[in-house]
Design a protein around this nucleic acid. Structure first.
Length: 758
DNA sequence: CACTAACAATGGTCCAACAT
DNA sequence: ATGTTGGACCATTGTTAGTG
C-alpha cells in the first residue's frame, strides 16, 4: 500500500498548510459519507493518517475531533474526497462509482451518520483542544534575524501552493531571513509517535515557503515577509526584520495584488481567530507614486472620494472597500469564492495621519521607512498587526484573543457559527445605570441613577495641609504603570446580558452594577473617598460596580445593596488581553534598558536614561500604552458625528465589545487599587496632595521617590504601598517639583498631578 | 467490520503557596 | 499586597478490549 499511501501523504502534506489555515472539518456524518463514497475502510484511512481505526470511527461518529497534527491532514483528505464525491443533495449524484466498491456493505446507511450528528458536547470539546498561541511568539530580540520564531508544528513543512499549481524550488526572494530549515518531524513528536511524514515534508526539500512574486501565493501560515511592509517612494518595501522587497506596483490595484503574493501576514492569535491580513504602509512618497493625494480633502469623513481614479481602478478590477471607504486605514478585499482563500489587504497611508502622533510619539516624522517598518513590526509581533488607531487596535486585540464565534456544524450538516466560551458573542444592551446618557435605555433617567465609575480626579483641600507637610520642600508625582491594564488582570467581568434583582446579597464574584448606600462610611478627609471619581464622599445611595463594593466590604463595611443589575455569566474576559499587553510593555521597556530585576535606584536611573532613547522604540512603547487606554475607552464608545440623533442608537452599540459595564469594572478596579495603596501610605503618615487617574502627588522631603516611599527595617518596601518597578501596577517617577508649586496650583483649584510632568 | 465500555494520556482551569 | 508559579482537579481524546 506504500505507493498509494505515499501519494496520499504527499497530497495531504502538500496542503496541510491550507487545511490548517481553515481548520474546518465537515460534520461527522459527512466524514463518513465521504469515506464510504470513496470505498475506503476506516482501517485504510487510519493507516494513512497513522492513527487507530477506532480514532477514525470516533471522528466519524462525532464522539471525538482529531487533534491538530492529524486534524489538518484529515481535513485535507476529506476535502479531496469531497471534490470527487460531492454531496448528493447538491449534485444529485445518484451513481457514485466507488459506492459499489465499498465492500459488500450495501448498508450504505446514511441513516446512522445522520442520526448522531448533533452531539452538542463535541462543540465544547474542540474549543479546548489546543492552547492559545497568544503569548508564544515573543522573542526577546524582535529585530533579530529570525522572522519566524514560533516553534511551528508540522505545518511548516508543507507550504506548497494550493492544489495543483506546481511551484517547485522557489526560494525566498528577498527579505533575507529564511526560517530555519529544521526538520518538521523532530518537533512534532509531542503526543503520539509523531507524524510519520514521509515524502515531501522533509527538511531539505523544495517545499519551501515562497514569498516571492508570482501568482502562487502562500496560502497559509509562514509569512516570510513578516506582518507588514513600509513602502517608500523608490519601490522598496521595507520589512519588519530590516530587509527590503522590490515592489514594482505603480497603482494601488497592482500594489494590492503584489502584497497578496509577497508573503506578508501574521498568524492568528487564537485558534478560532483569523490570520492578520497583510499590511502595506505607504509613506508620503509612496502615496504620491501611486497617485494618491498628499492630503485628504474630505477631512470630515477622512476618505478618498469614490470617483478618485485609484478607487475607480480598484473597483473595476473587482476589489471592494469596506464601508469606511479609502481612508488612512483602508481595507481592500475581494469576495471569497467558493472554497477560495481570503484575499484582503490593509493599507495605511501615513500622510493622511494613519499614525496619530499622540499615540505613536511622532514616529512618522522621526523614523526612516526602514525604522518605521521595524517599529511597526515590533508592535505587530508583540501586540497585533495594526489595523487602525491604537484605540481600534486595543479593541481588535480583545477580539483577536477571544474570537466571538467559531465554526460549528448545525443540524443539517452545514456550517454555522457558534459561541466561544469566555468570549463576548452577541451585542447586549447595558443596564440603564450603565449606559451613557446618549443611549436609548438611559432615556428619562435621573442623575442619581447613573453608574459613575471613572478614574480619580481629586485635589485635597489646601486647608487640610498640615504644618509638617508644608515644611516638606518637594512634591513628587508617581505614575502607576499600565494602571488600567493591571486592573483588568484576572478581573471577572460579565459576558452576557444583565438581569435585574431586588434586594440582592452582595457577592464580589458577580460582576454588575449595584445600588447601595455608602454615604454612611466615614473616610479620612486627607484621602479621596474610594467610592467616587471626585474623591468626595457620596451623599446618598448610588450605583457602583462590583469592584467598588468589594473594596467597601474589604474595608470592613457592611454592604447591603438595594437592587442590582447582575451578570451571572461571567469570566476573566480581559485576561489574555492584559497578558499580551503586559508582555509587550515589558519587552519594549527591556529594549529601552529597563528590566524587572533592577534595584530601585537602578530603575530610576534607567528610566531617566530611557527618555532620550531610540525614537522608534519609544514610539512603540507609547503605542502600547495608547492601545491599553484606547481599548478600554472603546468599550464605551459614544456617538460621533452629526449622524446621531438623540435617543437613537449608534453603530458601536451593535458590537459585542461595546460594554460600558466592563469599562466601569476595570476603572473601578483601578481606582480601588489606587486607593488601597494610598491607604497603606497613609498608615505610614503619607497623604497625597492630588490624584489624577493613575498619577498621584505626594509631599516629600526630597525630589526622589526613594525619599518618599516607606520601607521596612531591612530596607525592603513596606507592604502594600507604592512600589517602584516596571511591572504593571508598580510605579515610576512622573515628575518632581517644589512643594510651593503644587500648593499654588491647589489654591487655584488646579490639579498638580496634571502638570507635574512638564 | 462497526460499535460500546473502560482506561490512560493530555490539556485546561482553578486554587493556593510562593516571590517580589 | 500583588503578580507568578506549581499542583490538584476536571473534561476530553484516543487506545484497548469485548460484542454484535
Amino acid at each position: 500500500m506504500s505507493d498509494a499511501e505515499n501519494a496520499l501523504f504527499a497530497a495531504v502534506d502538500a496542503l496541510v498548510e491550507q487545511a490548517a489555515a481553515h481548520g474546518e472539518l465537515p460534520p461527522p456524518a459527512e466524514r463518513r459519507r465521504l469515506r464510504e463514497a470513496a470505498g475506503l475502510t476506516r482501517q485504510q484511512v487510519a493507516g494513512a493518517l497513522d492513527v487507530s481505526w477506532q480514532a477514525v470511527a470516533a471522528w466519524e461518529s462525532g464522539r471525538a475531533v482529531p487533534r491538530p497534527p492529524k486534524r489538518a491532514a484529515y481535513a485535507r483528505l476529506l476535502e479531496r474526497l469531497a471534490e470527487r464525491h460531492p454531496q448528493p443533495a447538491a449534485q444529485g449524484g445518484a451513481s457514485r462509482p466507488a459506492e459499489g466498491a465499498a465492500g459488500d456493505g450495501k448498508r450504505t446507511d446514511g441513516a446512522p451518520g445522520a442520526r448522531e450528528e448533533e452531539p452538542p458536547t463535541a462543540g465544547a470539546a474542540t474549543e479546548r483542544a489546543r492552547g492559545v498561541l497568544a503569548d508564544a511568539p515573543d522573542v526577546p530580540d524582535a529585530y533579530g534575524a529570525d522572522a519566524s520564531p514560533v516553534p511551528r508544528t508540522e505545518r511548516e513543512g508543507a507550504a506548497a501552493p494550493p492544489s495543483g499549481a506546481p511551484a517547485p524550488g522557489r526560494r525566498p526572494a528577498a527579505g533575507g531571513s529564511d526560517r530555519p530549515g529544521k526538520p518538521a518531524a523532530d518537533r512534532t513528536g509531542t503526543a503520539v509517535g509523531a507524524v510519520a511524514v514521509p515524502g515531501p515534508a522533509q527538511p531539505g526539500d523544495d517545499a519551501q515557503a515562497l514569498p516571492g512574486a508570482g501568482p502562487a501565493r502562500p496560502a497559509g501560515a509562514p509569512y516570510p515577509a513578516g506582518p507588514l511592509v513600509v513602502l517608500d517612494g523608490a519601490a522598496l518595501a521595507h520589512t519588519a526584520d530590516g530587509g527590503t522587497l522590490h515592489c514594482p506596483a505603480a497603482t494601488v490595484t497592482e500594489l494590492v495584488e503584489w502584497a497578496l503574493g509577497a508573503g506578508i501576514g501574521q498568524e492568528r492569535l487564537h485558534r478560532h481567530g483569523r490570520d492578520a491580513d497583510p499590511l502595506v504602509v505607504l509613506t508620503e512618497a509612496a502615496a504620491e507614486r501611486l497617485g494618491l493625494p498628499a492630503r485628504l480633502t474630505d477631512r470630515r469623513n477622512l476618505r478618498l472620494p469614490e470617483d478618485h481614479p485609484a478607487v475607480r481602478d480598484l473597483l473595476a478590477a473587482g476589489w471592494r472597500l469596506t464601508r469606511r471607504g479609502f481612508g488612512p486605514w483602508a481595507r481592500v478585499h475581494q469576495p471569497v469564492e467558493a472554497h477560495g482563500t481570503r484575499r484582503c489587504v490593509q493599507l495605511a497611508v501615513l500622510p493622511w495621519d494613519a499614525l496619530d502622533p499622540r499615540a505613536w510619539s511622532d514616529l512618522t516624522a522621526l523614523a526612516t521607512p526602514g525604522e518605521l517598518a521595524r517599529a511597526l513590526g515590533t508592535y505587530a509581533t508583540r501586540v497585533l498587526t495594526p489595523r487602525g488607531s491604537t484605540a481600534v487596535n486595543g479593541l481588535e486585540l480583545m477580539t483577536a484573543l477571544r474570537p466571538p464565534t467559531r465554526p460549528v456544524r448545525d443540524a443539517t450538516g452545514g456550517w454555522t457559527s457558534g459561541p466561544v466560551a469566555g468570549s463576548l458573542a452577541v451585542a447586549v444592551d447595558p443596564a440603564p445605570p450603565e449606559a451613557p446618557d446618549e443611549h436609548p435605555v438611559a432615556a428619562g433617567r435621573d442623575s442619581h441613577d447613573v453608574l459613575d465609575e471613572e478614574a480619580y480626579e481629586w485635589v485635597r483641600d489646601p486647608d487640610l495641609l498640615s504644618d509638617a507637610e508644608c515644611a516638606l520642600p518637594h512634591a513628587v508625582g508617581l505614575d502607576v504603570n499600565m494602571a488600567f491594564a493591571a486592573a483588568a488582570n484576572r478581573l471577572r467581568v460579565g459576558l452576557g446580558a444583565p438581569l435585574h434583582t431586588d434586594g440582592p446579597r452582595f457577592d464580589p464574584k458577580l460582576p454588575g452594577a449595584w445600588y447601595a448606600d455608602l454615604s454612611g462610611i466615614a473616610t479620612d478627609p486627607r484621602l479621596p473617598s474610594p467610592f467616587t471619581p471626585t474623591g468626595q464622599r457620596p451623599t446618598g445611595p448610588a450605583w457602583y460596580a462590583t469592584p467598588t463594593l468589594a473594596y467597601a466590604a474589604e474595608l470592613g463595611h457592611p454592604v447591603r445593596p438595594l437592587e442590582a443589575w447582575l451578570r451571572p455569566e461571567a469570566g476573566p474576559y480581559l485576561d489574555p488581553w492584559y497578558t499580551r499587553l503586559r508582555d509587550a510593555y515589558l519587552a519594549t521597556m527591556a529594549d529601552l534598558g529597563v528590566t524587572k530585576d533592577l534595584t530601585d535606584a537602578d530603575f530610576l536611573a534607567a528610566m531617566e536614561r530611557h527618555r532620550g532613547a531610540d525614537p522608534a522604540t519609544a514610539g512603540v512603547l507609547s503605542a502600547i500604552k495608547a492601545t491599553v487606554k484606547g481599548g478600554i475607552g472603546k468599550l464605551r464608545e459614544r456617538p460621533q458625528g452629526a449622524g446621531h440623533r438623540p435617543g437613537g442608537r449608534w453603530p458601536a452599540l451593535e458590537r459585542p465589545t461595546w460594554r460600558p459595564d466592563i469599562r466601569a469594572a476595570v476603572i473601578a478596579q483601578a481606582r480601588t487599587n489606587m486607593h488601597r495603596k494610598m491607604a497603606r501610605m497613609a498608615a505610614h503618615g503619607h497623604f497625597p496632595l492630588a490624584v489624577l487617574s493613575d498619577c498621584v502627588v505626594y509631599p516629600a522631603p526630597g525630589p526622589s521617590p526613594l525619599d518618599l516611599l516607606p520601607r521596612t527595617g531591612d530596607g525592603a518596601p513596606a507592604p502594600g504601598v507604592f512600589r517602584l518597578g516596571v511591572s504593571p501596577g508598580m510605579v515610576k517617577l512622573e515628575g518632581a517639583r517644589e512643594l510651593w508649586w503644587a500648593a499654588e496650583l491647589m489654591e487655584q483649584g488646579h490639579n498638580p498631578a496634571r502638570h507635574i510632568k512638564e
